[in-house]
Lab assay of single mutants.
Amino acid sequence: MASQGTKRSYEQMETDGERQNATEIRASVGKMIGGIGRFYIQMCTELKLSDYEGRLIQNSLTIERMVLSAFDERRNKYLEEHPSAGKDPKKTGGPIYRRVNGKWMRELILYDKEEIRRIWRQANNGDDATAGLTHMMIWHSNLNDATYQRTRALVRTGMDPRMCSLMQGSTLPRRSGAAGAAVKGVGTMVMELVRMIKRGINDRNFWRGENGRKTRIAYERMCNILKGKFQTAAQKAMMDQVRESRNPGNAEFEDLTFLARSALILRGSVAHKSCLPACVYGPAVASGYDFEREGYSLVGIDPFRLLQNSQVYSLIRPNENPAHKSQLVWMACHSAAFEDLRVLSFIKGTKVLPRGKLSTRGVQIASNENMETMESSTLELRSRYWAIRTRSGGNTNQQRASAGQISIQPTFSVQRNLPFDRTTIMAAFNGNTEGRTSDMRTEIIRMMESARPEDVSFQGRGVFELSDEKAASPIVPSFDMSNEGSYFFGDNAEEYDN
Rank of each mutant, 00 (worst) to 15 (best):
C223D: 06
E114N: 14
R75F: 08
F304R: 00
Q20M: 05
S383T: 14
T442R: 01
N76G: 01
P277E: 06
N250F: 07
Q42A: 02
V242F: 01
P477F: 02
F304T: 01
G268A: 13
Y97D: 03
Y281F: 07
V476D: 01
Q398H: 11
R199K: 06
H334I: 09
E107S: 11
Y496P: 01
N101L: 07
L110M: 08
D16W: 14
G356H: 12
L259K: 07
H140V: 15
T396S: 15
Q235I: 03
S9F: 04
R98C: 02
N498S: 01
R118M: 15
S176P: 06
V299L: 12
N224K: 13
E64N: 04
D203W: 04
L110R: 12
K357N: 09
R436Y: 02
P83I: 05
F420G: 00
L154Q: 05
G86P: 06
Q42T: 14
K7A: 00
R118N: 10
E434Y: 08
R267T: 08
R213N: 10
C164Y: 06
I316F: 07
T442V: 15
T437N: 15
M374F: 12
E443H: 06
T396M: 06
I347S: 06
L259R: 04
R342G: 07
T188D: 07
G356S: 13
R117D: 08
V190W: 02
K470E: 12
N205T: 06
I388D: 03
S367T: 14
R55Y: 03
S450R: 13
A237V: 11
G209A: 09
W330C: 09
T92F: 04
G34N: 12
S310H: 04
D255K: 07
T423S: 13
K48N: 07
G362A: 09
K273N: 08
D88I: 02
E292F: 06
G282F: 15
G356W: 11
E443V: 10
G431P: 09
F458R: 00
E465A: 09
R317V: 00
E372R: 08
E220M: 12
F420D: 11
A131E: 00
N498A: 02
G102P: 06
D302L: 00
V155E: 03
K7F: 02
T437W: 09
R422S: 12
V67H: 12
E372M: 07
L154I: 14
E244I: 05
L133I: 08
I217W: 02
V329K: 00
W120N: 07
K227P: 01
A271H: 01
G485Q: 10
A218W: 06
I119A: 04
R416D: 04
C275V: 15
T92M: 08
P419W: 01
Y385S: 09
E449Y: 09
L344Q: 04
I301W: 05
N370F: 14
Y289H: 12
E244D: 10
V299T: 14
G177H: 07
S28K: 01
Q4W: 06
K113P: 01
G102A: 14
Y40L: 03
N483Q: 10
S377W: 02
R422N: 07
S176N: 04
E454G: 09
L256A: 11
Y78M: 07
T360G: 06
Y385Q: 14
S467C: 15
R267P: 04
G404Y: 03
Q308I: 13
A153F: 01
K198D: 07
G300V: 05
E11W: 14
P410W: 02
K325S: 01
P318D: 14
G177N: 06
A146Q: 14
D480F: 04
R384P: 01
S473G: 04
R74L: 06
I347Y: 03
A366R: 04
T396Y: 01
A428T: 10
A233G: 10
E53G: 08
Q20P: 13
T15K: 02
N430T: 06
C275Y: 07
R446S: 13
T23E: 00
D203P: 01
F291K: 01
N395H: 15
A218T: 14
Y487P: 04
K113T: 07
S165L: 00
S176V: 13
D160Q: 08
I138M: 11
D491K: 07
L193M: 13
H324G: 04
E434Q: 03
N397H: 02
E252S: 05
R156K: 09
R156H: 07
V329E: 06
A332N: 04
N21T: 09
E254L: 08
L166Y: 04
Q327T: 05
S50Y: 01
V100P: 15
R199F: 13
M159R: 03
I63D: 03
A237R: 01
G435N: 04
A286K: 07
N430R: 08
N321M: 03
D145G: 10
M167W: 02
A237E: 09
V270P: 13
R216L: 04
S392M: 06
L172C: 04
R221W: 10
A27T: 13
P477R: 06
K184E: 11
E81M: 02
R65W: 10
A284M: 00
R74A: 15
S141M: 09
F258H: 06
D127M: 14
T147W: 07
G435D: 03
E192C: 08
A323E: 09
D421M: 02
F412G: 06
R391P: 02
K31W: 11
G431S: 15
L276H: 01
N430K: 07
S376L: 07
E372W: 08
M331Y: 00
Y289C: 13
L328Q: 08
V183L: 15
R461T: 10
Q409M: 00
P95C: 05
N417E: 08
K198R: 15
E372Q: 11
G93L: 01
I388T: 12
W207T: 07
G300W: 10
S84M: 11
K236F: 02
M481Q: 04
S478D: 01
Y487I: 06
S326Q: 04
K91T: 04
E449G: 11
R342N: 04
T373R: 15
Q327W: 07
K227W: 05
I96D: 04
S50L: 07
S297R: 14
T62L: 11
M426H: 01
L353A: 00
E454A: 08
T188Q: 12
R162H: 06
V67Q: 09
D128A: 03
A178L: 14
L154W: 13
T147L: 06
P477M: 05
N319T: 06
V329L: 15
G17K: 00
G485D: 04
M191V: 09
A85W: 05
G5F: 13
Q398N: 05
D51V: 11
V456A: 14
K348G: 07
R204C: 01
E81I: 14
N319F: 06
E46Y: 08
D255H: 09
R118A: 02
Y487L: 02
A286M: 11
A366E: 04
T92H: 04
N492H: 13
F488M: 07
D439M: 08
K229C: 07
T62Q: 05
L259A: 04
H135A: 15
I365P: 03
M105P: 00
G249C: 07
N492G: 01
F412C: 08
N202C: 08
K77A: 15
T411R: 07
A332E: 10
S478A: 01
Q327A: 05
A401N: 04
I475D: 02
M331F: 11
A336F: 06
E46F: 03
E320Y: 06
N144P: 00
A234E: 08
L193C: 05
I475H: 13
A27G: 07
P89K: 03
M447P: 00
R65M: 09
K357L: 07
E375F: 02
N498F: 07
Y97H: 15
R199Q: 15
Q241V: 05
W139G: 08
F420K: 01
A366P: 10
Y78T: 06
L108C: 06
A27H: 13
N368Q: 14
I444N: 10
I316E: 12
E495Q: 14
K325F: 10
I36R: 01
R261A: 04
N397M: 12
F338G: 01
R416L: 00
Q409F: 00
R98L: 02
A401F: 07
N21C: 10
H324K: 01
R152S: 07
P410K: 02
N101E: 03
R213C: 04
G200P: 02
E292R: 02
R98H: 15
I425Q: 07
A493E: 10
G169F: 04
D480S: 04
C44I: 14
A451L: 05
E80V: 03
K348M: 04
R389C: 12
A260T: 15
R26V: 06
M191D: 09
G34I: 10
